[in-house]
């Protein structure tokens, strides 16, 4: 890869820094920069920094698990214990929420969890790009899960799928009122799934940018306070990254369970 391309692309987006005075630009982190422009047949599949960091997240996840399980022993060593704990954690979620029929979804859920987790965590490296802070990325994930759930519901239950929108024991004259509400709350699922992850990541990184700007611009006797906040908040962002990945995966399991069982 031609690294001068990378340097040029970044130079175009860097804010103009007047002599000595840093500019407050917390949204600079979220700039999508095209490194290699590819547009066959009119489809724009340029390789941007978003794509590169997605590849890195997948590579890190794959590499970590490959390394942890390179020589598995019956009594696990440290890395293997961590990998096994991660597996059991996700197995517990799938089993608790979906039950035994969720076995065939487990590889997908596992991949989803670690993809979102490493995308969140790798974004905390200074100078990187947070993939899940793009609404289009989280929206694609959420929408594909939503479409999968609808497809599963119709495949397993046929037209009785629409019975999901009619709660039990409802007097029939309330139907025109309750059914639109149920439909809207069903359609709100992918929206909330996408927006929750996107908003948390974007807000966290913007806050980190603003806090660190204060560290940079204050003189030595004032800079320790925002610096301390930045350190603490970075740690908090690691925790939030994990929680958001967990909630995303857990809600995916809940929606899959609804599609498979409650229709």
């Amino acid at each position: 890869m031609n690294f001068s391309l990378v340097a040029e692309a970044w130079a175009e987006t860097a804010p103009n820094v007047a002599a000595g005075a840093p500019k407050l630009d917390p949204l600079h982190h979220f700039q999508v920069v095209n490194y290699v422009k590819l547009a066959p047949f009119g489809f724009d599949i340029s390789i941007s920094n978003s794509v590169v960091w997605m590849w890195l997240a997948v590579a890190v996840a794959f590499g970590l698990f490959r390394y942890a399980l390179r020589a598995p022993t019956l009594v696990p060593g440290r890395m293997q214990s961590v990998a096994e704990a991660a597996y059991l954690f996700l197995d517990g979620i799938v089993n608790d929420v979906i039950g035994p029929s969720g076995k065939k979804f487990f590889p997908g859920i596992f991949t989803l969890f670690f993809f979102v987790l490493f995308c969140n965590w790798l974004g905390l490296i200074p100078g990187s790009f947070t993939v899940t802070s793009q609404l289009i990325v989280t929206g694609t994930l959420a929408l594909s899960i939503f479409v999968l759930c609808i497809f599963l519901g119709v495949y397993h239950h046929g037209w009785k799928f629409l019975g999901f929108f009619v709660p039990h024991g409802l007097p029939p004259f309330l139907l025109p009122l309750i059914v639109p509400i149920e439909v809207i709350s069903f359609l709100a699922r992918p929206v909330s799934l996408a927006v929750r992850l996107f908003a948390n990541m974007t807000a966290g990184h913007t806050l980190l940018g603003v806090l660190f700007f204060f560290t940079v611009t204050l003189s030595w006797f004032g800079a320790w306070l925002p610096f301390g906040f930045t350190v603490v908040f970075s740690g908090f962002e690691v925790f939030i990254g994990f929680i958001q990945a967990y909630i995303f995966t857990m809600l995916t399991c809940v929606y899959l369970n609804d599609a498979l069982h409650l229709h």
Binding site: I184, A188, V191, S192, V195, R196, A199, N200, Y246, L251
Partner: peptide
């Protein structure tokens, strides 16, 4: 986790209703 889900679900449902 409940708080995060509640906040986003309420806002998302309002937006979906308004959007429709």
């Amino acid at each position: 986790s409940m708080a995060l889900r509640m906040s986003s679900d309420l806002v998302a449902a309002i937006f979906v209703g308004g959007g429709i």
